[in-house]
């Protein structure tokens, strides 16, 4: 006979797994890179946190370590997404045709004159690699 705590933990585990599944599905279905980052990296964060919470319900004595894993995830995961999105924008990854506005590109095109030499150097060599 399971206690209520165990059942709650199990249900949280399944809920987290459902969010992970949605994240995977979003990663597969979304049309362009930025939307894939949105669907993939974010939904999986919530899914993982729910699974950590479920594990904490099942084994309360692991609580501190699970909490720490959650905190680390909450700080590392957005960092990698941001750095990746920034790099992708710098490299002018093509966006889906539905994209309506891109204010960052406008801001960059104004600033580009000062940074021009650097982006030229970085971009020209690797574009061949990228497109092949």
């Amino acid at each position: 006979m399971e206690s209520l705590l165990d059942i709650t933990g199990g249900v949280l585990l399944v809920a987290g797994a459902v969010f992970l599944l949605l994240g995977g599905l979003g990663l597969w279905r979304m049309p362009d890179l930025f939307n894939r980052i949105q669907a993939g990296a974010k939904t999986t964060t919530l899914g993982t946190i729910l699974i950590l919470a479920g594990a904490a319900f099942l084994h309360p004595e692991w609580g501190f370590k699970l909490l720490l894993i959650g905190i680390f995830l909450l700080f590392t995961n957005p960092l990698s997404s941001q750095v990746l999105a920034r790099a992708a924008h710098r490299r002018n990854i093509e966006t889906s045709p539905q994209t309506s506005v891109d204010m960052l590109a406008d801001a960059f095109s104004q600033k580009a004159t000062s940074e021009n030499d650097l982006s030229e150097k970085a971009g020209s060599d690797k574009d061949a690699e990228e497109k092949s």
Binding site: A41, I69, L84
Partner: peptide
């Protein structure tokens, strides 16, 4: 970049 984001998601799922 698509592969990189897939890599990221795979590592997060591995924690699970």
């Amino acid at each position: 970049f698509d592969r990189v984001i897939a890599f990221d998601v795979l590592t997060v799922i591995s924690i699970t």
